[in-house]
Simulated scan of single mutants.
Amino acid sequence: MSKKAIIICASTHHGNTRKLANAIADKYGVEIVDATKTKEKDLSEYDLIGFASGIYAGKLHQAVINFAKNNLSKNKDVFYIITSAMGKDQYKSIETAIEGKNANVVGTFACKGYNTFGPFKLVGGTAKGHPDTDDINNALRFYEGLIGA
């Protein structure tokens, strides 16, 4: 049985996270919602819900956090995809947003993303060229593992 999936995404700096979400959507027909434009959506019909964002001041984009807090149904399988200059796992902000929803986090994916924010612009940015083809392929393998493809 295939799972009905959706990715709630905010990718406002260089489109790093959107590249990963688009690759998954293109290959698997996953719906993408831009959390910076859509504030409400009934998520009850989805079996698998992804929250995808770049990292802004150490947390996921506020639009994704608000979307999760306001729209996530109880007892859902969720996953996280993030891109950041450091490529670190920085999920605390989204985990706090879904407290009390009894969500089952089935996976997390993080990779580097090109960053020219603040002082990094002066040196031409960090993680230039990321996400690259390897990052995108790793994101696809991550998603395949979630759906058992």
Rank of each mutant, 00 (worst) to 15 (best):
S2T: 13
K4V: 08
I6S: 07
I7Y: 02
I7V: 11
A10D: 11
T12D: 05
H14G: 02
G15K: 06
K19M: 14
L20Q: 00
A23C: 12
I24H: 04
A25M: 10
V30D: 03
I32W: 04
T36V: 12
T38F: 10
K39F: 13
E40H: 15
E40S: 15
D42Y: 07
D42F: 11
E45W: 03
E45H: 11
Y46F: 15
L48H: 01
G50R: 01
A52E: 06
A57Y: 13
G58H: 07
H61A: 12
H61M: 09
A63C: 10
F67G: 03
F67Y: 09
A68Y: 00
L72C: 06
K74N: 14
N75E: 13
N75F: 15
D77V: 04
V78C: 13
F79V: 02
K88R: 12
Q90T: 09
K92Y: 05
S93G: 12
I98W: 00
I98M: 06
E99L: 08
N102T: 05
N102I: 04
A103C: 15
C111I: 05
K112F: 11
G113C: 11
G113V: 00
Y114I: 10
P119Q: 10
P119R: 07
F120E: 04
V123W: 06
V123K: 15
T126Q: 11
A127H: 01
H130W: 06
P131V: 02
D134N: 15
N138E: 06
A139K: 03
L140F: 07
R141A: 14
Y143H: 07
L146Y: 06
I147C: 09
G148Y: 12
A149T: 09
